[in-house]
């Protein structure tokens, strides 16, 4: 079934494939174009560097007049990300514009990793450390960067059978 929202999402996907922005990727799930999986690679020169952070994006039939719901699935430690992975970002809420597409959403989240906004904290501990104890902040971020790699290794727990 083709609706305006679905057709727009097909165009978003085409654009993402033909003109992929650096450091992000995304694609609809196999059986539902209204739900996407995405990955944001931690930007260079930030404590998030080398992290591979997974997200889900859920659209409604009102897209693009209403923004999608975007959440980190990978564990995140960031002043503007809530404990459940949802993101406090103005363009996903009151400054949404129907001219944004999936590329725009992902690159704006990537730039949020670059430039946290400690004035609208979603994670008070992260916001406080970001302001007052940058070294401790970076340590906590380094821990979730490591965890982001472990997400990919669900299948490496085979037993070696070395007990002789």
């Amino acid at each position: 079934m083709s609706t305006p929202a679905r057709r727009r999402l097909m165009r978003d996907f085409k654009r993402l494939q033909e003109d992929p922005p650096a450091g992000v990727s995304g694609a609809p799930t196999d059986n539902n174009i209204m739900v996407w999986n995405a990955v944001i690679f931690g930007p260079h020169d930030t404590p998030f560097e080398d992290g591979t952070f997974k997200l889900t994006i859920e659209f409604t039939e009102e897209y693009p007049n209403k923004p999608p719901t975007v959440r980190f699935v990978s564990k995140m430690f960031h002043p503007n990300v809530y404990a459940d992975g949802s993101i406090c970002l103005d363009i996903l809420q009151n400054r949404w514009s129907p001219t944004y597409d999936v590329s725009a959403i992902l690159t704006s989240i990537q730039s949020l990793l670059h430039d946290p906004n400690p004035n609208s904290p979603a994670n008070n501990e992260a916001a406080q450390l970001y302001r007052e104890n940058r070294r401790e902040y970076e340590k906590k971020v380094a821990a979730i960067v490591q965890e982001s790699w472990n997400d990919d290794e669900d299948d490496d727990d085979e037993e070696e059978g070395e007990k002789s």
Partner: peptide, 11 residues
Amino acid sequence: MLLDQFNFHYI
């Protein structure tokens, strides 16, 4: 404010 940063990176 965030949006301006976003546009900056973007453009």
